[in-house]
């Protein structure tokens, strides 16, 4: 079995700061991480590897620095890593990104046929959840999004049974390989890297693929291949009125003053709150 895992190196968004005067992003020194959602995909692939001895190839499209994220994946136990990097790929929206990843997956499949392609449900920087579906459509594979559990995997008979998070419940789906699976968060926990894998990850040669290696149609990559463009970036607008500061000498005084003010400004709120608590009481919810 051969499994591909698509990952993205993302800025650690908790550490992004906006310049207070110019309202622009201060990118300098922001550490990068593997998109946390992709780690659920990698761990799921690693568990299949544990059971079946599958080979895992990790791919990412990104700048040369993304090598660090790939090496991290190798240290967790992935067998191979491919950095898809070329300056013509930059400025890609999700459509152009899925084109490049699908082209790379086709090239990889030609060398070593793929049974499963995993990725996270979305990234934490773009939050779009569009690239997984895009890859599946471009490759003509079945798409299984928001998968919380793989119930059955039968590479010999080419089938897979998964639990998929839907609105209001869980769909149990039976599908065929090769399939594109996007993993839901919280389904597993990435393992600790073992010493042998850490040493291997530091030394192993990464494959670097450019436009020629994936036979890219240059009209479909980067800015040129992106139908959506950012027309404007702007900071949040302060409301006309700033928050009213509740004064008081003690926490108790502040609390009392706040509730007075709140129920005066929003006269229906107290009644609504009482009614809400009555309803909860009737439903047997303990207060």
């Amino acid at each position: 079995m051969h499994i591909a895992v698509c990952i993205k190196q993302v800025p650690d968004s908790a550490q992004i700061r906006v310049h207070p005067v110019t309202n622009t992003i201060m990118r300098q020194g922001v550490p990068t991480i593997i998109n946390p959602y992709d780690l659920f995909a990698l761990e799921e692939a690693l568990r299949i590897k544990d059971e079946t001895g599958a080979r895992i190839t990790v791919l990412t499209m990104g700048p040369p620095q993304a090598e660090e994220a790939l090496r991290k994946c190798l240290s967790f136990g992935a067998d191979d890593a491919i950095l898809i990097t070329d300056k013509v790929f930059s400025g890609a929206d999700t459509l152009a990104t899925s084109y490049v990843l699908a082209a790379a997956l086709k090239a990889l499949d030609a060398q070593d046929p793929l049974d499963l392609i995993f990725t996270g449900k979305q990234t934490i920087d773009g939050d779009t959840a569009q690239v997984g579906p895009g890859i599946a459509i471009r490759l003509g594979h079945q798409l299984l999004t928001y998968v919380s559990k793989i119930r059955e995997l039968d590479p010999a008979n080419r089938h897979i049974v998964v639990e998929r998070r839907a609105e209001g419940g869980v769909q149990v789906l039976r599908s065929a390989l090769p399939a594109v699976v996007t993993m839901l968060e919280g389904t597993n926990e990435i393992r600790f890297a073992g010493m042998p894998d850490m040493f291997r990850a530091a030394r192993q040669e990464l494959k670097r693929w450019n436009r020629d290696d994936i036979a890219a149609d240059l009209t479909q990559v980067g800015l040129k291949g992106s139908p959506t463009v950012v027309a404007q970036v702007f900071g949040p607008k302060p409301k006309a009125i700033k928050a009213l500061r509740i004064e008081g000498d003690t926490p108790e005084a502040i609390a009392e003053a706040f509730i007075d003010k709140l129920f005066t400004d929003f006269p229906q709120l107290e009644a609504a709150l009482l009614e809400h608590l009555d309803q909860l009481g009737q439903q047997g919810v303990t207060q």
């Binding site: 800025p11 968004s13 908790a14 992004i16 700061r17 906006v18 309202n23 992003i25 934490i124 920087d125 959506t228 463009v229 950012v230 027309a231 404007q232 970036v233 702007f234 900071g235 949040p236």
Partner: peptide, 9 residues
């Protein structure tokens, strides 16, 4: 950008 700014697409 991780929710620090807004953009129009």
């Amino acid at each position: 950008f991780g929710g620090s700014l807004m953009c129009t697409i």
